[in-house]
């Protein structure tokens, strides 16, 4: 007669015995992990934002929503523009009404829930606009947390979402420190900026880059030393967002202020 202790012990050993060979087949593949270190792709897509040039017109957001079929009136967007106003009392006022889809046409700051704050012109010390989009991180936390392999990094650096594979659990939306992910209102799957992957792979620029009249947004290939974006990143003072998270974001900012998170 087997006792409970032995039964549990044998079961545990049995299950471990079954799962171990599976793990060996599926997970540990040193050659793949080594290949990952070098990176065979000739392209590493990166983005450069010049916050001095941005005037907050929001034409990038409009173009992005149209190009990528994000329902226009839903309050979600792949890219958005934030406004930062710092007043003489040292206070920071920031907003992004509708993600700046319609630009910034008033100096009132939106506080949410239909409330606004009036800012007097003479109180302003600093004020500027910061476009935001997916950072296509080198270490994307959103990809790490996906339990089904529905979001992943292409060898050229862009993080994509497989809409057929996504189960809509929302881990990636919680995992992104930059808040760039949301649920697509139509497909109910995770959605994010993918640098207009269908455009950049055809030699076009992203919709937001092309739509910007002021050249505040640029896309480039970090592995091409002659690329104008690469030259700026290598030779000028550029900042990245939330460096302390170790995500290695690949969207670089000129004129980043400490207030920008």
């Amino acid at each position: 007669m087997i006792n409970r202790r032995d039964f549990l012990k044998n079961t545990a050993i049995g299950i471990a015995g079954i799962t171990l060979p599976l793990a060996a087949f599926e997970i540990i593949r040193p050659e793949k992990i080594l290949a990952n270190m070098s990176g065979t792709s000739k392209t590493r897509w990166v983005f450069l934002v010049d916050t001095y040039k941005c005037v907050g017109c929001g034409l990038c957001v409009k173009a992005c929503k149209n190009e990528n079929e994000i329902p226009y009136d839903a309050n979600v967007t792949r890219t958005w523009v934030e406004r930062y106003v710092i007043t003489k009392d040292g206070k920071l006022h920031a907003d992004t009404p509708k993600g700046a889809r319609d630009g910034f046409t008033t100096s009132r700051i939106e506080l949410g829930q239909g409330k606004y704050e009036e800012i007097r012109d003479e109180d302003i010390i600093k004020a500027f606009f910061v476009p935001k989009l997916c950072n296509q991180c080198e270490n994307p936390p959103c990809v790490q947390v996906c339990p089904v392999g529905a979001t992943y990094q292409v060898p050229d650096g862009v993080v994509l979402v497989d809409r057929k594979w996504c189960i809509g659990c929302g881990y990636c939306i919680m995992g992104c420190p930059y808040g760039v992910r949301f649920f697509h209102p139509k497909y109910h799957t995770a959605e994010k900026c993918n640098f207009c992957y269908h455009r950049i792979t055809k030699g076009l620029k992203t919709a937001c880059v092309s739509a910007c009249p002021f050249g505040a947004r640029q896309i480039g290939n970090l592995k091409d030393p002659g690329d104008p974006v690469t030259k700026v990143i290598m030779t000028e003072r550029v900042g990245i967002l939330k460096e302390e998270y170790g995500t290695k974001p690949q969207v670089f900012y000129l004129g980043l202020d400490r207030e920008v998170k």
Partner: peptide, 21 residues
């Protein structure tokens, strides 16, 4: 598992073509 390893490169490869289309 693809080029970026299990942590970042575990996916359905044909989805890249889907996005290009």
């Amino acid at each position: 598992v693809h080029e970026r390893g299990y942590m970042y490169g575990w996916y359905r490869e044909s989805n890249i073509e889907d996005w290009k289309k």
